[in-house]
Amino acid sequence: MEFQDMKEKFLTLLNNQSLIAATISQPRLKSNDLRRVRLKPIELKGIYTIQLEYQYERILKHENIPVDLFAAKLEQLLEQFRQIHAQFTDQTLHIQLSKKNKVLWKSEQTKENKKINLAHNRQKQYLLEETTIHPFLVRLGVQAENGAIKKQKYDKFKQINRFVEFIDDALDYLPKDRTIRILDFGSGKSYLTFALYHYLKIVKNLDIHVTGLDLKKEVIEECNQIAQDLGYTDLQFLVGDIQDFNDETAVDMVVTLHACDIATDMALARAVKWGAKVILSVPCCQHELNRQLLSPALEIMTQHGLIRERFAALATDSIRAQLLSLVGYEAQLLEFIDMENTPKNILIRAYYTGKKPSADDRAKYDDFIQFLSAKPFLQNELQGLL
Rank of each mutant, 00 (worst) to 15 (best):
G186F: 08
L347P: 01
I84K: 02
Q125W: 00
S31M: 08
S187R: 01
L44A: 10
L230Q: 01
I47Q: 14
F237W: 06
F336E: 00
Y232T: 06
T193A: 15
E221R: 09
L60D: 04
E130N: 13
R28K: 15
P66V: 10
D177Q: 09
L293Q: 02
L294I: 12
T316Y: 06
E2T: 14
L192F: 10
T342Y: 11
I24H: 02
A21Q: 13
A363V: 00
K114Q: 14
S358G: 14
I369Q: 00
Y154V: 12
V37H: 05
E335W: 02
Q236Y: 05
L298K: 04
A363F: 06
K30M: 13
M339P: 00
L268Y: 04
L294F: 01
V142Y: 02
F237P: 00
H258V: 07
E2V: 10
D241W: 10
I307S: 09
S358H: 05
K189Y: 09
K7R: 13
E57D: 11
W274E: 09
E112V: 00
D361I: 02
I348T: 08
R82V: 05
D360L: 12
I319N: 02
Q17H: 13
K150Y: 12
E8K: 14
E79M: 11
I24F: 11
D360R: 08
L128P: 01
R35I: 11
G147N: 06
D361H: 03
N146R: 05
K364D: 12
A119V: 11
P283D: 09
N15M: 10
E218G: 02
F336D: 03
H94S: 14
I346T: 15
L334R: 13
F245T: 07
Q4S: 15
E79A: 15
I319G: 02
R270V: 01
K106H: 13
E63W: 05
I149E: 05
L385A: 00
L347A: 12
R58T: 11
P343R: 11
T302Q: 05
Q152H: 13
V210F: 12
I337A: 09
I369H: 02
I180C: 08
C223H: 02
I300D: 07
S107P: 04
P283R: 00
E108Y: 06
H94T: 13
L385Q: 08
K201M: 00
S107E: 14
K356T: 13
L323T: 01
N246T: 13
A374N: 01
V254F: 06
D5A: 15
Q51D: 04
G188N: 09
L235Y: 07
A331M: 01
L347V: 12
K9D: 13
R36P: 00
L140F: 03
L60M: 05
A119S: 10
L298N: 04
E112K: 04
K355E: 08
M266R: 03
F377E: 09
L298C: 04
F185R: 03
S187L: 05
K356Y: 03
K45E: 15
T249H: 12
Y48C: 03
K158W: 08
A144W: 00
G46V: 10
Q243E: 15
L306N: 07
C285R: 01
G275H: 08
L104P: 00
L326G: 03
F377M: 07
L39S: 07
I84R: 04
P41E: 01
F163H: 09
I84G: 02
D234Q: 14
Y197L: 11
L298P: 01
E79G: 10
R162E: 12
E218K: 10
